[in-house]
Structure formats: structure tokens, C-alpha cells
């Protein structure tokens, strides 16, 4: 019985994190982006500096009519947002926050996380296809092309860490981590983060949604709650990517006082990475489709392979 209770507790905590952290990132994006652009952002919702803006947005989205285009593939159209969102919830289950603080410690954690994250993109693809809209389809195809291009360097960069640590378990990787990995695995960190951004279709890699030319691509026909779910998926994706970057490359809970406040370190590192995600969105313009592909195939893939070679040499020489 206590075991069951513990499982229940873990699941509840993960769900709570899943519901709260993306909103937190969204709020940071609202305010940080606004100040970076010399604006103030939301100021009214919740009376104090617009802290409840996203709650208000949520209430608004719920009230909206659920519209499905006449020509749409109804069933696929309707489940697409769920498929976009749920994988991130599942991934969160496997990400360790502190020693022993993990939804479920899997031996194949890294493999599981990468595989499930890829599924999230399928939801967007489904939405693009099922909308029966030219712009959506175009966006969907761009999503597919982007997924193809960036999944490879993403996985290669993650593989480099797994090789260095000699395990696929996320907890094991953090335990094997030591500060000089920051230098040793720096190219992998860069590749992983950039490819992850591209996979989330975050600016500057938001060619598929490109609101200015594709009227939000795969999400064109979505409104109300379903649209909100897609947006929530984007922010949940940021949380997952930031957490993974923190766990794989930045040493998770390693830091001063890690015995008492390890989980705080993981959260702080995750927050810092999430801030960088927002920062990049503000600072950089969108990449063109061909630039996007060139960056993946001519930049990130060779860099990731180069990193793999360095890691291999390192592992053989120092025998990890």
C-alpha cells in the first residue's frame, strides 16, 4: 500500500510540475520579452504586474467555440493537440530533479526521453495535415522537414553524453558528471540546445509556424482550447528541453550544498536555460527554410560527429 501511495504522489507531483512550470516559462517570456523590447508587458491581470495573464488567457480560451473546419479530417484534427502535448508529460516523468527525486528512474532513460519527445512533433504534423488548409499543410511539411533535419544532431549530441557517462540512465549520467564536462561536452551542449530549439519550432527556428507568412502554419485552423493545448505543448517543450539540457550537460543537481538543495540546483539550471530560450527568441530573426536546413546538415551534424569523436577519444584515454 505505501508503494502505491508513493507512486501516486510522484505522479501527482509530476502533473503539478507539468501544469505550473510551462505557465511560469510563459509568464517569464511575456515579461522578459517585453522588457527586452523596452515595453512592460501585461500589467493588469492579477493586479500585480500581470502575474495572472496566462490564467486569464486560459479562461478566455476555454470559453471559445470549438470549431472544426468542414473539410477537415475530424478525428485526426481533434486528437492532434493531445498528441502534441502528452509526450512532454510522459518525458517529465523520467527527468530526475535530485538524487532519488524522479518520477520513474529508467535504465534506458535517455533513449526513452528522446524517443517520446519525437512523438510530440507528430501532433503538429497531424494538425497540419488534418486541417485541410494550404497554409497548415505547408507548415506541417516544414515541421516534418525540420524534424528530419534536427532529430539527427539532437540524438547524436545526447549520445555523446551517454558515451561519456557510460550509461543511458539519466540519473546515472548526472552522477557521472563532473565540472570539466562543461568544456569537454561544450560542442554537444551547443548542438543539443540548438537542435532542441529547432525541434520545438521555437524562434529563430519557427519557420513552420511563421505567423507572418503562414498564418501560424499547422495551427491556422485551431482555436479555443485546442489552440491553447498546442501553445501549452510548446511551453512544456521548453521546460522539457531546458530540464534535459540541465540534467545532461549542466550537471543537474551538482553544485554547492547539493546534499540539501540539489533539486533547487536542477530547477535553477532549468530556469536559466529556459530564460536563454526566451532570450534567443527576442534577439534573433527567423531563419529562412534553406538556412534552417543548411544549419542542420552542414553545421550541427558535422559538429555532433566531431564531438562524438572527441568523446570517444576521451573515454578511451581516461577510461571513464
Amino acid at each position: 500500500m505505501p508503494e502505491l501511495l508513493e507512486v501516486l504522489l510522484r505522479v501527482l507531483v509530476v502533473i503539478a510540475a507539468f501544469l505550473v512550470l510551462p505557465l511560469l516559462v510563459g509568464q517569464v517570456e511575456h515579461k522578459a520579452m517585453a522588457h527586452m523590447q523596452a515595453r512592460v508587458g501585461p500589467m493588469y491581470a492579477g493586479a500585480f504586474h500581470g502575474w495572472a495573464q496566462l490564467v486569464a488567457d486560459g479562461v478566455k480560451f476555454v470559453q471559445k467555440e470549438d470549431v472544426v473546419p468542414a473539410a477537415a479530417d475530424r478525428r485526426v484534427f481533434k486528437i492532434a493537440p493531445a498528441i502534441a502535448l502528452l509526450p512532454y508529460l510522459v518525458v517529465m516523468l523520467a527527468i530526475p530533479i535530485g538524487p532519488g527525486l524522479v518520477g520513474q528512474d529508467l535504465d534506458l532513460g535517455l533513449f526513452f526521453v528522446l524517443a517520446v519527445m519525437g512523438v510530440g512533433v507528430v501532433g503538429t504534423l497531424m494538425g497540419g495535415w488534418a486541417s485541410a488548409n494550404k497554409f497548415s499543410l505547408l507548415g506541417g511539411i516544414r515541421v516534418a522537414a525540420q524534424l528530419m533535419a534536427y532529430e539527427l544532431p539532437f540524438v547524436l549530441a545526447a549520445a555523446s553524453v551517454a558515451m561519456a557517462a557510460g550509461t543511458l540512465s539519466l540519473v546515472g549520467i548526472v552522477e557521472a558528471w563532473s565540472p570539466w564536462w562543461l568544456l569537454w561536452q561544450a560542442p554537444a551542449l551547443f548542438v543539443f540546445f540548438v537542435a532542441g530549439l529547432a525541434e520545438l519550432q521555437r524562434p529563430p527556428f519557427d519557420m513552420p509556424v511563421a505567423d507572418a507568412e503562414l498564418v501560424f502554419g499547422p495551427y491556422t485552423e485551431y482555436g479555443g482550447l485546442r489552440f491553447a493545448l498546442f501553445i501549452l505543448a510548446e511551453y512544456a517543450g521548453i521546460v522539457v528541453l531546458s530540464a534535459l539540457t540541465a540534467v545532461l550537460f549542466l550537471g543537474g543537481w551538482h553544485g554547492p550544498f547539493e546534499d540539501q538543495a540539489g533539486w533547487l540546483w536542477t530547477l535553477a539550471k532549468t530556469g536559466a536555460v529556459a530564460f536563454v530560450v526566451v532570450w534567443l527568441r527576442v534577439a534573433y530573426p527567423r531563419l529562412r527554410e534553406d538556412q534552417l536546413q543548411r544549419l542542420a546538415w552542414q553545421g550541427l551534424v558535422p559538429l555532433a560527429l566531431f564531438q562524438l569523436a572527441i568523446t570517444a577519444v576521451g573515454v578511451v584515454v581516461w577510461g571513464s
Binding site: H35, M36, Q37, A38, R39, V40, W279, V282, A283
Partner: peptide, 21 residues
């Protein structure tokens, strides 16, 4: 250039916004 872009946005964030309330 990329660094410069990050610098400009960060500097902006630390300054008071110009919004008229």
C-alpha cells in the same frame, strides 16, 4: 553579430521601459 544581438536585448531588459502608463 549574434553576441551583439544578445547584448542589446539584455541591456534593454536592465533599463526602465519607455512605456507611458
Amino acid at each position: 553579430g549574434l553576441m551583439k544581438g544578445l547584448g542589446v536585448t539584455m541591456r534593454n531588459m536592465t533599463r526602465r521601459s519607455v512605456t507611458a502608463h
